[in-house]
Structure formats: C-alpha cells, structure tokens
Amino acid sequence: MDRISTLLASLMIVAAAATLPAPAAAKAGNIVLVHGMNMDGGAWRGVYDRLTADKYRVTVVQLPMTSIQDDIAATRRAIDAQDGPVVLVGHSYGGMVISQAGTEPQVRALVYVAAFQPEIGESLGFLNASIPGKLPADALTVFKDGFYLVKPDAWIADVANGLPEAEARYTAMFQAPANTAIFGYKAEAAAWHNVPSWAAIATEDRTIAPELQRRMSKRSGAKVVEIHGGHLLPMSHPSEVTSVIEDAAASVK
C-alpha cells in the first residue's frame, strides 16, 4: 500500500471512531442500604431494583438488631466489601447506624431516609422524647429477653401509614424483633460532620416526627427533599427515594 492509500485508510478509521457513542459518564457506583428497626433488607426491594437498573452496585445490609454494636459491625463489613467510594443510606433507625459506620474512609455521601441523624452523645430515646411522634406509649410488646415488637394495629396505623392496607398488614406481621437496649445507646460518632449528607423527609411520618427530621437535617446541613408519605418511604415512594440517592451518588468525585 502506497503512502496516499495508507493516509486515506487512517482517515477512514478516525472518521468511523468519531461516529461511535461516547462512553457513559462514571458514577459513584457503590450504594449500601441499611434498613430500619424491626424490618429487614426486603424493605429496600423497590429502591434496589431501580438503582441496579441504573447500573449501580447495590448491597443491602441485614441488621441482626441484637445490639447496635452488632448492627454497626454488619454495616462496616458491607462497606469494607466495596471497591471504591460508597454512598451509605439509612432508613429510620438505620440513620443512627450509618452515623456511626459512616466514619469509614470510603464513605463519601450519607443519605438519611425518614431517619435519625444523631449528634454525638444523643440516643434514640432522647431524640424521640425531644419531639415525639404519634406512636402510642403502649405500642410495644416487650419480651422477657429484652427484645420487642410493635403491636400490629399500632404498626399499621403509625408505621406503615401510606401503604395499601394488605401490604401494611404484611409488614406488621413480618417484623423482626429488636433489642430494647438499642434505644439507650448514645452515639459515639456523627459522620455527617465530615461527610456530605442528604435527607428525604417523610411529611406524614407518625413514627419519627417530621419536625424532628427537619431539625436534625438543618443541624447536619443535609440537602433536603420532602416526600409526601409515611414512615416507610423506601416501600411507598421508591422512585423518589432512588432519586435522592442518585443525586448523592452524582456528587461523589
């Protein structure tokens, strides 16, 4: 092949390459989801499906709820299993957990979904008492070993409000017992001091008062999105919750 033919062939290759689609922009691809008290990882299914469809690598933590130390350890194991930066997401009590486990260096963003955002030294019991929700004082069944469940009627009315009746009743009956000692644990870390945070506030929440969610979010400097729904936002509003998480992921460099 002479020099002119070689040059023409090279130009054709360059032109063909220019017509190829550009590679997709890189994302902070690792999302770790932490469920709330008396729940399990299945509560995240709608959010998980949406995130994985958008090509995120999603890990769902299963908390033992035997103690907060055990729950923090389970979350840290999930974080340590990731390759690269992590967006750490907590629903409800999961907010306490991610505020402790979120000090791991690969955690680059925190997302609180209808969740507690404790300051160092604060407990769930303290925060609940500061601005009480609507859950009745007698809503819990406490067992001899210190574990508890929420009575089904109270769960349906005050935890699962906003879900279809059949689904609300199902969530009431699939509850996982949790150790009451968790309520007295005083936060030893508040990762939101050093990690950018987002908050999805449930405006109809009867478990964690919306006013408390707003107050904690203002203190943490979280980017706030208000969602018209009850406490179980990951189940009732998975698309909106997914959008908040993806906003956080897009911010990670």
Results as ranks from 00 to 15, higher is better:
Ala25Asn: 08
Ser5Pro: 02
Lys27Phe: 02
Ile4Ala: 11
Gly36Tyr: 04
Ala17Tyr: 08
Thr6Val: 14
Met39Arg: 10
Pro21Asp: 05
Ala16Gln: 01
Thr19Cys: 05
Ala22Cys: 06
Val14Pro: 00
Pro23Asn: 05
Ala24Gly: 00
Ala16Phe: 05
Thr19Gln: 10
Gly29Ala: 14
Lys27Gly: 02
Leu11Thr: 13
Ser5Gly: 15
Met39Gln: 07
Gly36Phe: 11
Met37Tyr: 04
Ala16Ser: 12
Val32Asn: 10
Thr6Ile: 13
Ile4Pro: 01
Ala28His: 01
Leu33Trp: 03
Ala9Leu: 15
Asp2Met: 12
Ile4Val: 12
Gly42Ala: 12
Ala28Asn: 12
Ala15Arg: 10
Met37Phe: 11
Ser10Asn: 08
Val32Glu: 00
Ala16Trp: 02
Pro23Met: 06
Ala25Arg: 11
Thr6Leu: 15
Thr19Trp: 02
Ser5Leu: 13
Pro23Phe: 10
Ser5Asn: 14
Ala43Thr: 14
Ile4Ser: 04
Ala15Thr: 14
Met37Val: 12
Leu20Cys: 14
Gly29Glu: 15
Met12Tyr: 01
Ile4Trp: 08
Asn38Ala: 13
Ala24Ser: 14
Ala43Arg: 02
Ala22Asp: 05
Val32Leu: 00
Thr19Leu: 13
Leu33Asn: 02
Gly36Trp: 06
Ser10Pro: 06
Arg3Trp: 11
Leu11Met: 09
Ile4Asn: 11
Asn30Leu: 11
Ile13Lys: 03
Leu8Arg: 14
Asn30Lys: 07
Ala16Tyr: 01
Thr19Ser: 09
Thr6Pro: 08
Arg3Phe: 13
His35Ser: 09
Leu20His: 07
Asn30Trp: 10
Ile13Gln: 03
Gly41Asn: 02
Met39Pro: 00
His35Ile: 10
Ala24Trp: 03
Ala15Glu: 06
Gly41Gln: 06
His35Glu: 05
Gly29Lys: 15
Ala25Gly: 06
Pro23Lys: 03
Ala9Asp: 08
Ala24Pro: 00
Lys27Ala: 08
Ser10Leu: 15
Gly41Ala: 08
Ile4Gln: 09
Thr19Ala: 02
Arg3Val: 13
Ala26Glu: 15
Ala43Tyr: 00
Asp40Cys: 04
Gly42Ile: 00
Leu33Asp: 01
Gly29Arg: 15
Ser5Glu: 15
Leu11Asp: 07
Pro21Glu: 04
Ala22Leu: 13
Asn38Ser: 11
Gly29Ile: 10
Asn38Phe: 11
Ala9Glu: 08
Val32Gln: 05
Ile13Trp: 05
Pro21Lys: 03
Pro23Leu: 07
Asn30Tyr: 09
Gly36Leu: 06
Asp40Ile: 01
Val14Cys: 13
Ser10Met: 15
Leu7Ala: 11
Leu8Ser: 05
Lys27Asn: 12
Leu33Met: 03
Ala28Cys: 15
His35Leu: 04
Met12Trp: 11
Met12Leu: 13
Val32Tyr: 02
Arg3Cys: 07
Asn30Gln: 12
Gly41Trp: 01
Leu8Asn: 05
Ile13Asn: 00
Ser5Asp: 13
Asp2Leu: 07
Ala18Ile: 01
Ala15Asp: 06
Thr19Phe: 10
Ile31Lys: 04
Ile31Arg: 07
Val14Arg: 09
Gly36Cys: 07
Ile4Thr: 14
Arg3His: 12
Leu11Tyr: 09
Leu7Ile: 13
